[in-house]
Every structure is written in C-alpha cells, then in structure tokens.
Design a protein around this nucleic acid. Structure first.
Lengths: 254, 254
DNA sequence: CGCTGTTTTGAAGAGATTCAAGATACGTGG
DNA sequence: CCACGTATCTTGAATCTCTTCAAAACAGCG
C-alpha cells in the first residue's frame, strides 16, 4: 500500500513484484480457472498490485466507491453488514482463491465491510479492466458468471441455515463447510485452525458467543471433535456430516 | 407449453405472439434497462417464448438442467430450497420485472425450485444466446452484472434479517420491502395484496405461521396496519419503516 | 506479573415454537 | 344456492431453545 503506490500504476505493465496467475497456487480455484495459458497471460496483464493486510485491517468499507474485486491469495477475511442500530451481521468468511467485492457491482459502492482475520494478501482486480477483458476472453466471462452464481447459491445455503436449522445443526454445517473448503485446497479436512473468534462464528450463525462455546463443549464431550483454543480436530466427520444434513442429532446435553 | 412447443423453435424468429421488450411495461426494471432501441431489438431476437403458469405450477425444479433465465412479466413467484429432511426454506419472492434462475449458472443445474404464487407469465431467456449477445452489447453485459450483484446484496440483507432481527422487526422489514417494490412498479406503496400464504411468509422469515398470525394481529391492534385476508393497508408506514430500521419497537403484546 | 480480552460455565429469563382447538374462508357437488 | 369437507388462519396455553446476565477461568502481551 505504501511502497507499491509509488510504482507505475499502469495496469498493463507487469512488474517484478507481481506473481503471475499461472504460477499462483490458487489458479485452479480462482478467476483463471480453466483458462488457457494465453488467456491467463491476458488476465495477468490487468491484475493490479497485490496488497498485504494485517489482522483486523479493513480491505474495504461499506459505502466506498467500487473499483476492484479482490482475490484472496493467502489468509482469511470476513465480510459483514452493519444495520441502522450499529450491529453487525457477518455474511461470509473468505479464504485463498475466493473472490471478494462482487456485491459492490450493483450500486458501484461496497455494500459491506471486508476485514482480514489474520495477516493476508489479495490481488487487486480492477473491475473496469476486467470488463474490457470479458469481450476478448469469453471463457473468462463464463467463469466469472459461475463465480457470481456460486456466491448466490452459497448465500441461499446460509439462508437455509439461518431460517431453518437449530443451533447444533448450524454449527455442524459450519464445521463441515470449513472442512470441505480446506480439503479442496489440499489441507487436512479433519484438522484445522479456526481463523475467526467464537464471537464471529456466533454472529455468522445467528447465535451468541455463549451458545457457540456450549456447542463446542458438547461436541467435545460427545467425542465428535477435539478442540484446543482455535485448533479443531474432527473426530467423527461422518456423524458431523449427518448432523449437518439433519439426518442425525445429538441430544440437548446428555 | 403445449401449443407454443409446436412453433418454430429458432430463437431468432420473432413470432406474432411475442411482445417486444421495448413495448413491455417492465423494460425499465428488467434486463433491457438502459439499453438503446437497437440493442433492445437484438435482445428481443433471442428472447424465447413466453410461458404462462397457473398458481402452484413449478417454473423449474431443483436439479433440472439449466437452459433459461426467466423474467417475470406478470404475477408472482417464490423460490425455495429443500434440505435433506424435506423441509423447505423460501429464499425469495419475485414479481414483475425480476429475473429468476441466476443461481443455476454455477452448476448448470437449478439450485432451487421456483413456483408461481398466482397465474403468472414469464419470458424465457435462453442463457446460451444471452451469452452470445454479451459480446455484442456491452451495456447489456454490464446491466446483467448489476442484476446478479443486486441479487447477492438482496440475499445479504436477508441474512442480516434472519441472523440479527427479532420477529417483529423481520415482519416490518418484509412489509416495507414489498411496499417499496410495489411503489417502484407504480402501484400503491400502502395498499396491496399479499400474494403468498401466511405459511410462506413465516417460512421466508424463519418464523412459524402462528407467529406471523400473532404479529399481524398485534400490528393491527396497534393501528400500524389494516388487514383483511390477504389485503394489507399500511396505516403508519413511517413507524413501520422505523421498526424495520430497528429505530423503534412495539412492546411484546401490550 | 498483572492487565486485558477472550472463552467457558451456570442460572434465570425471554421469545418464539409446539400442541391443540376453534374460527373463518374456499371449492365442490348436490 | 346451500351444505359439506378441506384449507387456511387465528388464538390460547405449555414448552423449549436460545439468550441474557453474571462470574470465573484462561490465554496473550506489554
């Protein structure tokens, strides 16, 4: 943000600091997914600078003018809305390879806040240039539509969770979802760090921090998980999946 | 669906039954918004047949292959997901000028069910042809992105509602939201028909049908609304807006 | 080491659900 | 046009899940 700003801003100029999409470990999940090498190069041409953020640093704030989408290179983010009363509702947690900022397209202003949960890095994708590229690289456009659509279905799944599920099922869904996303990135599906606080989890799931703490204790006692601070081990992923699907449930405190 | 199927299927062939987008009363809200006449014509060329649905008839079902987006010409729809236990969660109510089916792009299959709430009509928009047009009409592409983004923000607002609000506030938000959408269509913002059952409302808001009924009775008693079956009159829109914003609240049964 | 922020746990309380019954509308067929 | 059966909606009482309030345990950090 400081030094990088002094570099030539022309987005068509590749600079030494920039790592190409082709070389990025996330290119199979991120925007370049499925593109041919030549097209990945064209995408590389328009990608702006990378940006590092430390924990709790905002990537963008609600109401700011929309210029860029952001692809998470590493680290984690949360996005949240703030209502009139000043309370927040977390609408998602994003990890490497995921795209941030699509909700800003409709009004040309960001519709939520995005904050880094840990030291993280994003690629800035100037949307105006991306739009130019859409006309030249149809495969990119198609994939972009898939990504936006995927965000819509993701949010529909959260609506199902918030509207329809009990606390225990919500939490199981949450764990299984993280598990699957880490697996897709080549990490362990049964052992990972929670990057967000209990409070963030509770907020996201429409529950209080105390409820999350109790659920965690209960799952621990039932031998479903092992928890040490933010390190989680899923001991019985199958049962957790069943709970997430609503097939099974654990008694309200045995 | 019966007779229309026997018509030439070539989407470039205009037929007498088809009403042009330019002549459609919804073109200021729908996909053609902001397009020049020439571009509206090109859009018209690819719009498939119109399709009538009667009450409770499904427009599409979860899992069906994705071919078309649908623009509501008149009538109302609901979309819902079904979980493993067979319970539904309504994710939205759609009215004239709104677009259905965008959640299907990501997986090439519909991700939810869409059902007509009353006798309705939609325009079929073959997505493959729409994609072809994107390369030729940049303004159309930009507007399409805005519409998808708007759907994302709409769903984020519902997440806020489900995750953060008490029953009374949820219901106020629901009424004010309908009010605004009818106003945008030139209808009364204070007097309208609920096209959906109490059960649908409750399901959408993450509440039971009994809770909706009680809320309606309470709002009636407080003089906020007047209700006769599905006809609603907002007597104090300002106070309802305040409740929706969380600025004001009515006591839990005076 | 002591401060601060986060997490855990317990007990009391509130809001919404569930269960149950009755009221009201609606469609069908006589 | 009315009678009947069914759907939908309303209302009440009991119950339950989750929240709120409170305090203690724990971890992180200067």
């Amino acid at each position: 943000m400081i030094a990088a700003d002094t570099l030539p801003a022309t987005p068509v100029t590749a600079n030494a600091l920039k790592i190409s999409c082709a070389a990025c470990s996330m290119h199979q999940l991120c925007l370049p997914m499925g593109l041919e090498d030549a097209d990945i190069d064209r995408l590389d041409q328009i990608i702006g600078k990378r940006r590092r953020l430390e924990r709790d640093e905002p990537l963008y704030k609600m109401g700011e003018p929309f210029r860029n989408l952001y692809a998470v290179r590493f680290g984690h983010f949360k996005t949240y809305q703030i209502n009139a009363a000043g309370e927040a509702q977390i609408t998602g947690f994003q990890m490497a390879g995921e795209l941030l900022g699509m909700d800003a397209i409709s009004a040309d202003r960001h519709h939520c806040d995005a904050v880094a949960l840990e030291d993280s890095e994003v690629c800035e994708i100037p949307f105006a240039h991306l739009q130019d590229l859409f006309g030249q690289v149809p495969a990119l456009l198609r994939h972009f539509h898939r990504i936006m659509s995927q965000e819509i279905t993701r949010e529909q799944n959260v609506m199902l969770l918030l509207g329809n599920m009990r606390a225990e099922q919500r939490f199981a869904v949450f764990l299984i979802n993280l598990s699957a996303r880490y697996a897709a990135r080549g990490y362990s599906s049964t052992r990972f760090q929670l990057r967000m606080s209990r409070e963030d989890i509770g907020n996201y799931l429409g529950l209080t921090i105390e409820s999350i703490s109790r659920l965690l204790s209960r799952f621990k006692k039932l031998g479903l998980v092992q928890v040490d601070k933010r390190e989680v081990v899923l001991l019985e992923p199958a049962r957790l999946k069943a709970m997430a699907a609503g097939t099974e449930q654990c008694s309200p405190m045995a």
